[in-house]
Design a protein around this nucleic acid. Structure first.
Lengths: 224, 224
DNA sequence: TCAAATAATATTGACAACAATATACAACAA
DNA sequence: TTGTTGTATATTGTTGTCAATATTATTTGA
């Protein structure tokens, strides 16, 4: 399958935004990008338009297009919704999970625990994602899974700001353990609540951090 | 504020899809649309690309672009998520609603009741939307409200298939009354559950209907 | 010095034309 | 009939160019 320049551009920019290569507020200059990637303005333009629809990029009319910088309040709102979606995944997973899926989830949990022992936050970050992905799958609602993943991506540029202390990781693993047990036992309500809290704690810790960094909401960053 | 052709096209197509002028599966021919709206292919192309991102349109490579025809299973999944989002709105509204908002909700409820008396389904449809919009606002989570509205739009092309019996309308109003009371009394859990059910009942009735119409999933419709 | 008017510039939108690719169709052969 | 090959066609992607509009910079006049 051959993908168009527009699609490749879109993916590349999305990556850069999610991974923090392009910080919120950074300007996306059409001509500069066209030069960088060796294409004309059209595919750039189209890629950016699509990113606008999905919410990762915003345009200020006649001022330029910028990596979306979501305000503090909206960030809280987004975490609130994220928690709800994750909770729903947990509830459905507790009801619908299949034996093989349960084993996959157990394995993912163990990998989280291992990376905890080694105190490698980056590794944990990946395993953590896998754990949650297992729950998405087990919810047997692929539309929900897609929506959840999409929202998580939109939040990622800001989760980099979270402080990943050793303590937080071990706490997180404990939460995972409780979530797993609830799903294993088919306790829908418990699984939902645990997952909601799990996400909201992240959100709270995050917002505590952000509210300390006063410069955040106002700083205007340019392209590196 | 001046809107571009691309934006106008996008809105126009969106409207046509949501209101059933363009049925799921209908082909969107670039050249035909360009001729119809008297513009070149570029704005058409860009408008369509954006609709693809938001899920209303799909492209089959080298076969053409079509109004998205979501399968029966995915439709169920979407209703499941819709119910969750509406339930969340209700829960938050019960906690956060302001006096003025409560009065607006009460007024919307009364308008639903009135349109029930007159047995005018079309009118009820509109007032029903207003009622739910009031709840969205009262949730004080504008991100959630946007997501809910967006998903509702994606479902709209299929809700046309629902049978709007007089009976259903009066039942619906009763549900609205219970929802309103729960929100008024600040009963978060009750409001959430009532709203979830309210949506799921629609979804169930709908799926009952769809599963009878065998031809639905397979029929390939062309542009009118 | 300040403010209004004007010029220069950047952003954005749109078009026509060209190019590449995959599909559908038809002619042909087995 | 069935299958294969080649040709025509439709779809899709990309480019260079032009045009419209708003912002920024500069000049001008008081």
């Amino acid at each position: 399958m051959k993908r168009s320049n527009t699609q490749k551009l879109k993916d590349a920019l999305e990556e850069d935004i999610i991974n923090g290569q392009l910080l919120p507020g950074a300007k996306l200059d059409h001509d500069a990008l066209a030069a960088k990637y060796g294409v004309s303005r059209t595919p750039i333009r189209e890629a950016i338009q699509q990113l606008v629809v999905s919410g990762l990029v915003t345009v200020k009319a006649k001022k330029g297009t910028f990596v979306a910088k979501v305000g503090f309040d909206q960030l809280i709102e987004m975490f609130e919704v994220m928690a709800e979606l994750e909770g729903m995944c947990g509830r459905l997973a507790a009801r619908r999970i299949q034996p093989a899926e349960l084993e996959a989830l157990r394995a993912a949990l163990h990998r989280c625990e291992d990376s905890d022992v080694m105190s490698d936050p980056d590794d944990y970050y990946y395993e953590n994602e896998e754990f949650h992905n297992c729950i998405y799958t087990a919810s047997h609602n692929s539309f929900l899974a897609t929506e959840a993943r999409q929202l998580k991506q939109r939040l990622k540029p800001y989760r980099r700001l979270q402080l990943q202390t050793r303590n937080r990781v071990s706490t997180s693993v404990n939460e995972h353990r409780r979530i797993f047990e609830a799903i294993e036992k088919g306790q829908e309500y418990e699984a939902e609540q645990q997952l909601k809290e799990h996400v909201l704690i992240q959100g709270t810790r995050f917002s505590d951090f952000v509210s300390q960094v006063k410069t955040f909401g106002n700083s205007s960053q340019e392209t590196s």
